[in-house]
């Protein structure tokens, strides 16, 4: 289905949705939301793009390789950030006691390691949403062509 209105509106909306998603991810410790909610918003923006244009255009913006890398990278980043605390002599996932600077409360960088955890979760959730969506679409395509 080709619809000029949908495409133009989508082009206008997608950057704002993504910016809002990134805002929710990075302000997870200050405002409602966090890694999961923000990642879901970013992922939804990519799904919106692929719905309004088509699958090829969508996967040109975010290829399988990149989304695979982001998906695994998010989870790996989370675990590695947990290990940093262990290398600093504290228990797994320790935040302040391991020496992460907390900063001034209310500022963007005021949560020590939680900031990294939120970003890692955001990457993971956003790319997983895309991958799930692409897999559903491509799966039905593949089965149709094989019949």
């Amino acid at each position: 289905m080709e619809d000029l209105l949908v495409r133009i509106i989508c082009r206008l909306v997608v950057p704002f949705v993504q910016l809002y998603g990134l805002y929710v991810i990075t302000h997870g410790h200050l405002s409602p939301g966090g890694g999961f909610a923000g990642g879901a918003i970013v992922g939804a923006s990519m799904i919106l793009f692929a719905l309004a244009f088509n699958l090829e255009a969508g996967s040109r913006k975010l290829s399988h390789d990149i989304s695979l890398l982001m998906e695994s990278g998010g989870a790996i980043g989370f675990i590695l950030a947990g290990f940093v605390a262990m290398l600093l002599g504290q228990n797994f996932l320790t935040n302040k006691a391991a020496g992460f600077p907390l900063g001034v409360p209310g500022n963007l960088f005021s949560s020590g390691a939680i900031f990294f955890f939120s970003v890692a979760i955001g990457f993971k959730v956003g790319s997983t949403m895309c991958t799930l969506f692409y897999n559903l679409i491509e799966g039905s395509d593949r089965h149709r062509s094989s019949e």
Binding site: E71, L80, F83
Partner: peptide, 24 residues
């Protein structure tokens, strides 16, 4: 740096998860 055996259980779980996500 002080890594004694008490960290080992969490290292097991985390390292298996890490390898799982590295695998793809």
């Amino acid at each position: 740096m002080n890594l004694n055996y008490e960290h080992l259980p969490v290292i097991i779980v985390a390292l298996l998860l890490l390898a799982a996500f590295l695998e793809p």
